[in-house]
């Protein structure tokens, strides 16, 4: 086990600065943490967590991060589970320099604590052939609008996946958005080749005996768009593209699987929904201690109230009568 990853005999200019300045005055750890500086096991060493929405880091920033880490950090950077680059082993007295030098390259620090965290996202539709929705654009937009909001009763996490493979684990976030496409079949264009039925992984397309024409089973469809992508004559097309929305998910000591509350929500409605859910959480978690949204929604009365309050924001995209987020405990 590595107890000290700090490069021996190295450190920033401040490594030679007089230690323990202002001795006796305890640093404001909470303020430090809100700014993405996480106190380490090692005295006066901090892990600096960087804001990397959707895990995308432009190369010029990456170069600066490497430079700053070499000067002030340890012998490596760490990739967090939520796509942040973290620079461990930064000395307390160097934190301000680190923040300043990263900011010169446009690199911001993330947040910790009971706030809206940096949204995570898959690589998205730009170069991933499975991508249906622009997760990177949404993660950047949502980070710009909501990042750091709080403090609330507890943290608030969001993620964006571009297709039903759901690499961004939308069911494990307070709010998760998973891209989906609803297919439409144009009978006049169809040549009855049967490729769509063979390409569908869900058995959602059956071929009629005799005509070999597809019959769409909406109840089995995952809205992945494979039929659209496979059809050689574009008889399958996108009817609607949008987001499956999940709420109340979390991991941690008491994991909860998020509940789907909407289908095919358009990009333009995402911010309004986030705003409504955050406000609801802020209001309804007040006075209940350190509680995540999904835990709060375990109370049947709270779930009913949540659906009643958020329903109008979801409008026609609301899922009919959804079940609450489902705990996934380890007790047995």
């Amino acid at each position: 086990m590595i107890r000290d990853g700090h490069a021996p005999g190295r450190g920033g200019p401040a490594a030679q600065a007089p230690p323990g300045e202002g001795r006796g005055a305890e640093p404001d750890y909470k303020a430090l943490k809100a700014g993405g500086m996480v106190r380490q096991r090692q005295k006066d060493r901090f892990t600096v967590r960087l804001k990397c929405p959707g895990g995308r880091v432009p190369l010029e920033r990456l170069a600066r991060i490497a430079e700053v880490a070499r000067r002030y950090g340890g012998q490596y950077v760490h990739l967090s589970f939520r796509q942040s680059i973290e620079i461990p082993y930064v000395a307390l007295e160097d934190l301000d320099r680190v923040r300043r030098e990263l900011a010169e390259a446009g690199q911001e620090i993330a947040t910790c604590g009971a706030r809206v965290r940096v949204p995570t996202a898959c690589s998205g539709c730009e170069y991933n052939p499975n991508g249906l929705t622009d997760t990177q654009k949404m993660a950047a937009d949502v980070a710009a609008r909501f990042f750091g909001r709080g403090p609330f009763a507890h943290k608030f996490k969001m993620s964006f996946s571009g297709c039903p493979i759901d690499c961004a684990r939308t069911s494990e976030n307070d709010l998760g958005f998973q891209g989906a496409v609803e297919p439409r079949w144009d009978e006049s264009a169809c040549t009855a080749c049967g490729l769509c039925a063979a390409a569908c992984r869900e058995g959602a397309i059956e071929l009629a005996a005799g005509t070999n024409k597809p019959r769409y089973r909406r109840d089995k469809c995952l809205f992945c768009g494979d039929c659209i992508r496979a059809c050689p004559v574009d008889a399958w097309q996108a009817q609607r593209t949008g987001w499956m929305v999940r709420v109340g998910g979390k991991h941690g000591r008491h994991p909860i699987v998020g509940a789907r509350i909407a289908a095919m929500l358009p990009d333009a409605n995402v911010s309004g929904l986030i705003e409504a859910v955050i406000s609801w959480y802020e209001k309804n978690a007040a006075g209940k201690g350190r509680i995540r949204l999904g835990a709060l929604l375990q109370d049947p009365a709270a779930w009913r109230r949540f659906l009643a309050d958020i329903g109008p924001v979801l409008g026609e995209w609301a899922a009919p009568d959804p079940a609450p987020p489902r705990p996934c405990e380890i007790h047995f």
Binding site: C193, A199, D226, R229, P232
Partner: peptide, 18 residues
């Protein structure tokens, strides 16, 4: 059959008959 036809289409080829 789940993977190849959609990739053929992505790459600009055309399935004429099945």
């Amino acid at each position: 059959m789940q993977d190849v036809p959609k990739n053929l289409k992505d790459e600009g080829h055309r399935v004429l008959a099945v």
